[in-house]
Design a protein around this nucleic acid. Structure first.
Lengths: 238, 238
DNA sequence: TAGTGGTCTAGACCACTAT
DNA sequence: TAGTGGTCTAGACCACTAG
């Protein structure tokens, strides 16, 4: 027998929703959820209240309603290209990510960087260049600018291993990015740092990463084409 | 004064929803929607019915509720990388897309193509190779396999200009794709067809395009790096 | 036939916003 | 103070599914 918390100000439909979510955590797709009337009796609430709770879970894609049958755990949706950090990208490939800082300092934004970051030219930005390795071998050169207004004390706090983890801890984990991807040939300095022959093919990525409606990072990365293939999922799921 | 259709079997909340949608078509973000009680009086329905209609529009991202203020047309959501056809991709760049078929025939699926398309080796597939141009100049070589079971009479019906339009007309417009993107150097034959020097950088794209939960197309494309940059939006919107 | 989700009613009280 | 959306009740009838 379950009861609802009272006096906490938490709406009943939220409590019912979270109860059902907890109930079905780790449940296989196809598992039956409690029926709406069952929850009505259990929590002594109106059916519309239960429906509001279930509606939310259906909207999330966790549950699926089948008229006349019941409500069931849905097949998990395809994961629409979640934004991965470099470490996560490499981990997904079974590679160990490492990073070597080439430059990290406070600068004044030039016109191009300012426009991309959505700040005023002259505003303080963090300029961070890294050579990124995977399983010990060079993989990528990254040249990033961060909006320093959003990240006070970032340089002083000691550079983090994962930028996205650091942003996450400030509630600024990027959930959206606009990328451009192009093929090119490595320049001389790039070739040296990436330890490839000059004229080797590379993948150039430009990124604008957005968190909480604000641009937190703009970057240009150069990946060794012989070590890196980019995977993307496009479109909308049903 | 609006009225609801009766006897059509169309739920009231659907009719209210579509009425509001029509009312706000072409409305600027920030425009106020009718209040819930206003719609209650207008259509002589219960408020829960109106809320059900509005809930759907809020879920779609068309409307936004502001407690104590009202309901308003929301800022349009960022467009999560809608799947564009080649013609659409080029049009978005202000280029005119053309296509020259190099090969188009029925084949038996080999093991690799069969696995990618989700058919049995030996099943009939459509093999279609094209040289794609933009503003008259070579842009891309595409080598595609289509699931012929889903596309009966496709080859006989005359090859369409746009594959995605042709799929669309059969209700099989891909809404989802898994792409891989890599940088490479053009091979000899590729270089000739694309009219670039051998050793020029190219972008290689592999695609699995899915419509209605079925794989309809798998393809490999080679883009001239000097003419093509790929744009992607990643992540989930709020 | 019993149970399910889908739809719908006619109210109610609340916190909040704007005037 | 009047109006808004947020929450909630205690029922109802329907079409559909399953045993």
């Amino acid at each position: 027998m379950e009861g609802l918390m009272t006096g906490t100000g938490v709406p009943k439909h939220v409590q019912v929703r979270e109860y059902v979510r907890g109930l079905l955590r780790d449940a296989e797709p196809g598992t039956a959820a409690p029926s709406e009337r069952e929850l009505v009796h259990q929590f002594h609430v109106a059916r519309m209240t239960v429906r509001q709770a279930m509606d939310a879970l259906v909207g999330e894609g966790l549950l699926e309603r089948i008229p006349g049958r019941g409500t069931f755990v849905a097949q998990p949706r395809r994961d629409v290209g979640r934004l991965l950090s470099y470490s996560e990208e490499m981990a997904a490939r079974g590679l160990l990510a490492e990073s070597q800082t080439l430059l990290a300092r406070r600068e004044q934004a030039g016109p191009g960087v300012a426009r991309a970051l959505g700040v005023t030219p002259g505003d303080a930005v963090i300029h961070w260049k890294r050579l990124r390795r995977a399983d010990g071998l060079p993989m990528c050169l990254e040249d990033a600018y961060l909006n320093e207004v959003l990240l006070p004390g970032f340089l002083q706090s000691g550079m983090p291993t994962s930028l996205y983890d650091a942003l996450d801890s400030r509630g600024l984990r990027p959930t959206w990015a606009e990328d451009s991807i192009a093929a090119d040939i490595a320049g001389q300095q790039e070739a040296e740092l990436l330890e490839v022959a000059q004229g080797s093919p590379v993948l150039r990525q430009s990124r604008r990463a957005i968190a909480e409606e604000k641009v937190v990072e703009v970057s240009r990365s150069v990946y060794r084409a012989d070590r890196f293939t980019w995977w993307v999922q496009l479109g909308e799921d049903h």
